[in-house]
């Protein structure tokens, strides 16, 4: 092992990229809280936050500041270490997924080809699943360590919900992977750019299932049972206060952002600007339009997430499980089989 033989420029490049991606996703998550409240307001014929700063734009800062200055309460009978570990895990897993999303094409800076992607690993999508399945632990550990029946119950609900919907999510993706033949997100995007159509055209049902599962994985309404404010007293983060609560809430928004970015990448062509031929643009312009396209798609999807949240009522728990196991999984299996048959037929 020769650690000094590392490509230092490469390491620095990736470090910078990681810093940028993390800070950007934090800022977006911050403003997603603001956007959520605005969308909720508009849908309910209200204004939403509009006091802090112009149009209430400083509201997320004010909220964050408030959370920081709140008293930090650690319940007496809780498991201290795990109680702190819970929100940390939630935050960590939320951030980790961003590593494999290709945020843009390749750009040449100072003679180096730089990918706007932290790591192009050949098992990209599986990595997402791995991290998502880790995300459950944040909820479970947090809920259990609070030493509170409601928290525990909500944590169990959350974990079983996440596991159930992960299955359908994986099955819906298998159909997509049959078409692309690659697990790397970069390859998937490049196929969508060079081919004429985005993957949603080939996989509308797969997209639908994936989208519903993404809602459930992010604990978003109508699947927000783990944190059902009105039923389980805030669910698994009932005992949390101050910034630890903030971490849990924040992780939800980061999750939402990341999963929207992944949906955009998988089904909507990633950084492919529609109706524009990227090859004709010069390097930097192509890159910027690509990044803008990806962010535009992501924001639209985030809006849809919020729109759904403020339209639909919460599922009952048995309805949730019914939908997952009896609705989405058979549908995903069907989609998989049909796609496989068609893929086999066209290949011959």
């Amino acid at each position: 092992m020769n650690i000094l033989a590392l490509d230092w420029a490469f390491a620095i490049e990736k470090m910078v990229l990681i810093a940028i991606v993390i800070s950007v996703s934090l800022v977006i998550a911050m403003y997603a809280t603001y956007a959520e409240r605005k969308v909720a307001g508009f849908i309910q014929d209200r204004h939403g936050p509009n006091r802090a700063g112009p149009f209430g734009l400083l509201q997320p800062l004010a909220d964050g500041l408030k959370l920081f200055f709140k008293e930090e309460v650690i319940p007496n009978h809780s498991n201290k270490w795990l109680f702190v570990l819970g929100p940390c895990l939630a935050m960590l897993t939320a951030m980790m997924t961003s590593a494999i999303i290709p945020w843009g094409g390749t750009v040449e800076i100072g003679g180096r080809m730089i990918d706007l992607q932290i790591a192009d690993i050949n098992i990209g999508i599986l990595y997402v699943f791995g991290v998502v399945s880790m995300g459950v632990y944040g909820i479970m550990i947090g809920g259990w360590a609070s030493n509170n029946k409601f928290s525990l119950m909500a944590a169990l609900r959350g974990a079983s919900q996440a596991i159930s919907y992960e299955l359908a999510m994986g099955l819906s993706l298998i159909a997509l992977l049959m078409l692309t033949g690659s697990l790397s997100l970069k390859t998937i995007v490049e196929q969508q750019i060079s081919g004429n159509w985005w993957n949603i055209v080939y996989q509308p049902l797969g997209f639908f299932i994936f989208f519903v599962c993404a809602l459930a994985e992010c604990n978003r309404a109508p699947f927000d049972l783990p944190e059902a404010e009105s039923e389980l007293n805030m669910g698994y983060h009932q005992e949390y206060s101050s910034m630890k609560l903030g971490f849990f809430l924040f992780a939800e928004y980061i999750n939402m952002f990341i999963s929207c970015a992944i949906i955009a990448t998988l089904f909507f062509g990633g950084y492919d600007m529609p109706f524009v031929d990227e090859t004709k643009l010069s390097g930097m312009t192509a890159l910027l339009t690509g990044v803008a396209a990806l962010f535009g798609k992501t924001f639209i999807l985030i809006f849809v997430f919020m729109w759904i949240r403020w339209t639909l009522p919460r599922f009952r728990y048995d309805q949730l499980m019914n939908l997952g196991w009896k609705g989405l999984i058979p549908l995903a299996l069907l989609n998989m089989v049909v796609t496989a048959a068609i893929a086999l037929y066209t290949m011959k």
Binding site: V39, F42, I43, Q44, D45, R46, H47, W307, W310, T311
Partner: peptide, 12 residues
């Protein structure tokens, strides 16, 4: 329906 409410007059 909810989308159409975005463009309605605010009652606040």
């Amino acid at each position: 329906i909810t989308f159409s409410h975005i463009f309605k007059k605010k009652v606040t």
